Amino acid sequence: MSSVAVIGDIDTVTGFRLGGVKRTEVVKSAEETTIAFDKLLDEEVSIIIITQVLANEIREHINRKIGSNVLPMIIEIPDKDGSSEGSSDQMADLIKRVIGVEMVK
């Protein structure tokens, strides 16, 4: 495992391509997102950057596939329209996956 990949809309992906990320997937639906996500898991990508909107659309699938694994690290970012309501606290989720304990505020 040793690469970064991005799943998102054309604008998000283009920005990352301009920044040097070579492994990208442009998607337009939950079905395309699921297929792209599974493809990246098969390629053993270590970091998957995905827009919050798309991650929320396939949340159950992501949780089922990743489970308690630390890698790949899933980083959710806002898309061109900004943050989505109800997005999860990524750091708390990562800590829970790594140490198995939910951090309480």
Rank of each mutant, 00 (worst) to 15 (best):
K39C: 06
E25G: 02
L40Q: 10
K22C: 03
L54Q: 14
I58V: 15
E31N: 11
S46F: 00
E76T: 12
M73V: 14
N69I: 01
I74H: 04
S83I: 05
S68H: 07
E32D: 09
D79F: 00
I58G: 03
V45Q: 04
R23Q: 07
I47V: 15
E25V: 02
G67Q: 09
I58W: 01
T34H: 05
I74S: 08
I75C: 09
T51D: 10
N69K: 15
S46H: 02
E32Y: 03
L41W: 10
I74P: 10
L41M: 13
G67L: 05
R64E: 13
I66T: 10
V45W: 04
K22P: 00
D79G: 12
E57Y: 00
I62R: 05
D38F: 03
E85M: 05
D79K: 00
E44L: 05
I35F: 06
I74R: 05
I48G: 11
S83E: 12
Q52F: 00
M73F: 05
S29Y: 03
A55W: 00
A55I: 04
V53C: 01
R59H: 06
E25I: 04
I35E: 15
S46M: 01
S84Q: 13
L71H: 13
I75L: 15
I50K: 10
V26H: 06
I74T: 08
I49K: 08
D81K: 11
D81E: 13
K22D: 08
I48E: 11
G67H: 09
A30S: 15
S46Y: 01
I74N: 08
E43Q: 14
M73Y: 06
I48V: 15
D38L: 09
E57I: 00
V26I: 15
I49N: 09
S29L: 02
P72L: 09
D81N: 15
L71V: 11
M73E: 07
K65S: 12
G67P: 03
E43T: 07
T33R: 03
R64Y: 10
D42F: 06
R59K: 15
V45E: 03
T34C: 07
A30C: 02
I48T: 11
S84N: 04
K80T: 15
K80P: 02
G67N: 04
I66D: 05
L41I: 14
G82S: 11
L71N: 13
V70H: 12
